[in-house]
């Protein structure tokens, strides 16, 4: 039940980011200055935290989606759906620790201050 709610909420969030992301990438067709100015916003500390949240939503939606596929198509899927949800949460945690450390280290290394 809660995995279903989480799947919907992360899905909607990712969808709206996707609309924005295609629009900001489209600025490469306007001018290099316009693209660099807008993409520069993604390098602000607040946006760095936002990126970790976005990747958290994507990774949950991805792993839980794979669990749904296994429940639907794997013969033993319905029997092990609960264990697979635990696996999703453990894998999500491990992936997010690794991503967050790497993303923050890269950010602080090249950060020129406010």
């Amino acid at each position: 039940m809660w995995s279903w709610v989480g799947h919907r909420i992360t899905g909607v969030g990712i969808f709206f980011f996707l609309l924005v992301h295609v629009l900001d990438t489209s600025l490469v067709r306007v001018s290099p200055e316009a693209y660099d100015a807008v993409i520069g916003a993604y390098k602000h500390p607040i946006m760095i935290m936002g990126e970790i949240g976005l990747v958290g939503a994507i990774v949950f939606h991805a792993f839980n989606g794979l669990r749904i596929i296994l429940v639907d198509f794997w013969k033993q899927g319905t029997r092990y759906h609960r264990q697979m949800l635990w696996a999703v949460m453990v894998l999500w945690f491990v992936t997010m620790v690794a991503f967050s450390i790497r993303h923050l280290m890269i950010f602080f290394e090249g950060w020129e201050g406010f």
Binding site: V28, P32, Y42, K43, I48, F107, G110
Partner: peptide
């Protein structure tokens, strides 16, 4: 795009190009 090279800092017009 984010985990190799300079990560988030490398993303600009030249990177996309």
């Amino acid at each position: 795009n984010l985990m190799v090279g300079e990560g988030i800092h490398q993303i600009d017009f030249a990177f996309v190009a």
